[in-house]
Nucleic acid binder design. Structure first.
Length: 607
DNA sequence: TCTATATCACCC
DNA sequence: AAACGGGTGATATAGA
């Protein structure tokens, strides 16, 4: 019987896998080492034996604990091996993040870094790098290499045990297991991936440079500020001088090349407008390393718990939801399937309302249109006003709500809504007067952080706020971090309900289902998202919106439609046809067999 | 030629 | 002094 935190487990298994994971592919397992703390039992298994096992060689039931560092990797290996996932997962990466979040660490958040910060030493990081390379290289391996890899794998398990003993006194096991549960979910999401129109992607990649060249050639002939595809500051400066245009400069003395300045300057000097458009277009053309596997699905590390607020932080480069929105048109369900993008409506506003208990804010959220209702509550528009009758007022109150969420000041808000500072000040004042209880609450939160030196969410995601923290961060933390809790919980529910979850996107998720099951899946997902919000917000339920994408349609975001159409037009000229037939979905969709799914778990509440 | 820095743009 | 939260990544240029 081994006590971990305040709970006792029959067995505690420390596990590490070595694997290789080419971009966009599920991991290929190389080897595994597992140690059990109580009995001292040690297991070392090479790939060829692992794939024969139908069940992990360690206990994964209710009264045992699975411990790993960055457990989504180990869980990914389980899924690849068709093994069920452990009931109780303790991820020391996540717990170390939570234990030190907000502090400056001597050696980062790797296992090695965690050991160092507890005054322990692991193996040399140069050796680690060599072995990691060896695992990534893939087989075949010599007997010596196999031994080396297993030894290396085992050394990490030993390091993990040392870390566990050090961090054990700080563990809040019920909550740590909720976080571990999300790491299981994250592994399943990564395992699933997002279906991609690979023909379109190939076409885009093939003509990527040509498209940019064409766009530049069309416009730059009038300016001569590009060298190949590089915008040259010096050439632009020369052009400005020749055209006698005084251009704003940064404090450093360099020309201010932000789009904001381009926009303003285009008003007084219309001839800079086309150049501005070109720069905007080119900046939306970044698609370097979208990682798509052989099965035509976009997969990458979600980097769960990476951000200070506990959000996922996948690479913008590899993740289809990273680059400009028009590129989401590459998301396309395979034949017979559909997708749905489901997001919480005004999530942060709802969280602020619920956690502060501000009755007017709650009423505004429940009205269905918080921005319009806010304007009414502030007596700025008549009680019978609508979204259409008072469009611009609604936009201003909306901007004000967002400004408050980010701690924006009157000057920035004024600029944002293109109004005098007095107007912005007035809007912010109305917010403070209308939502008095919210402001009392949020000020108490900020004071608490200043006094105690840390903040945490309802499920115990912690951040240290020592030193001179940015007060706007403190003010935003409860909304963003509890929003992240909500998303993680919803993802767990959705995965555990057997729904194919493809991606989390901060306040939204993308799911997939056969066309005839899609609406049911969406309905269930919406219920589960409401459930998750109620758990985080003590009974308060947030609404969700769903957008469907049914084969043969592709994902389309209104904001990116113009760009997508413009690019399609150019592609048409290059290739002569708009699209190729869809390839068959290569292993595009297989539902995880029921016996492999994580069972639905109860959750723990309180604080 | 490579790296570091500043700046900017994208996402929620 | 200024004051938009959390991020990742690309780009242009300066400097080693």
């Amino acid at each position: 019987m081994i006590p971990i935190g305040k709970r006792v487990f029959r067995e505690v298994w420390l596990v590490d896998f070595e694997f290789s994971a080419p971009p966009g592919e599920q991991p290929s397992v190389v080897c595994m080492v597992a140690h059990e703390i109580g009995s001292g039992k040690r297991i070392r298994v090479w790939q060829d034996e692992l794939i024969k096992l139908k069940w992990p060689p360690y206990a994964i039931c209710n009264d045992t604990l699975f411990v790993a560092y960055y457990a989504s990797a180990e869980m990914g290996c389980h899924l690849k091996l068709n093994w069920p996932l452990p009931v109780n997962v303790l991820d020391l990466y996540v717990e170390f993040r939570n234990h030190t979040n907000g502090l400056t660490l001597p050696c980062g958040t790797s296992l090695l870094g965690a050991l160092v910060s507890f005054g322990l030493s692991g193996i040399e990081s140069s050796e680690k790098e060599t072995m990691r390379q060896l695992a990534m290289r893939g087989g075949p391996y010599t007997q010596k290499e196999k031994e080396d890899l297993l030894n290396y794998c085992e050394s990490d398990v030993i390091a993990l045990e040392k870390l566990l003993l050090k961090i054990n006194p700080f563990l809040d096991i019920p909550r740590a297991l909720i976080r571990g549960r999300y790491m299981k979910t994250a592994a399943q999401i990564e395992h699933n991936g997002i279906p991609i129109d690979v023909n379109k992607l190939a076409l885009l990649r093939k003509h990527w440079i040509e498209i940019q060249d064409k766009l530049i050639a069309e416009i730059d002939s009038e300016y001569g500020v590009f060298d190949q595809r590089t915008f040259k500051y010096s050439l632009f400066a020369a052009w400005l001088q020749k055209n006698e245009i005084p251009w704003p400069r940064l404090l450093s003395g360099k020309l201010d090349l932000s789009d904001e300045v381009f926009k303003e300057m285009a008003r007084s000097y219309p001839k800079v407008a086309p150049l501005r458009e070109l720069r905007v277009t080119l900046s939306q053309m970044r698609l370097a390393e979208l990682s798509v596997g052989q099965d035509n699905r976009n997969r990458c590390l979600l980097s769960a718990f990476r951000s200070r607020t506990g959000r996922n932080q996948p690479s913008n480069n590899q993740f289809i939801f990273g680059p400009a929105v028009w590129l989401r048109s590459l998301i396309k369900p395979s034949s017979g399937y559909g997708l749905a993008y489901i997001d919480w409506s005004q999530q942060e506003f709802g969280i602020a309302a619920a956690l502060s208990g501000d009755s007017l804010m709650i009423k505004a959220y429940q009205s269905g249109d918080p921005y319009l209702e806010f304007a009414k509550q502030a007596n700025a528009i008549p009680i019978n006003a609508t979204k259409t009758s008072h469009k611009s007022e609604r936009e201003q109150f909306k901007a004000c709500v967002l400004a408050v969420q980010y701690g924006m000041g009157a000057d920035s808000l004024a600029q944002r809504i293109n109004q005098p500072v007095a107007k912005a000040r007035e809007l912010l004042r109305l917010h403070k007067e209308t939502y008095k209880q919210f402001w009392e609450w949020i000020e108490a939160v900020v004071n608490y952080a200043m006094l105690i030196g840390r903040l945490h969410t309802v499920f115990g995601w912690n951040v240290y706020t020592e030193g001179s923290p940015n007060p706007r961060f403190l003010q935003n933390f409860p909304m963003q971090a509890n929003g992240a809790e909500m998303l993680r919980l919803a993802c767990c529910f959705v995965i555990e309900a057997g729904i194919k979850l493809c991606a989390p996107v901060h306040d939204a998720i993308l799911i997939e289902a056969p066309l005839n099951e899609l609406e049911q899946a969406v309905q269930t997902t919406q219920q589960l998202m409401a459930e998750a919000s109620a758990i985080v917000l003590n009974g308060f339920r947030l609404r969700t919106d769903a957008t469907y994408i049914r084969y043969p349609d592709h994902y389309e975001d209104e904001r990116g439609k113009k760009m997508r159409e413009a690019i399609d037009k150019i592609l048409l000229k290059f290739s002569g046809k708009s699209s190729h037939p869809d390839p068959p979905g290569v292993g595009a969709y297989e539902t995880l067999p029921a016996h492999l799914r994580t069972p639905v778990q109860s959750y723990y509440l309180s604080i």
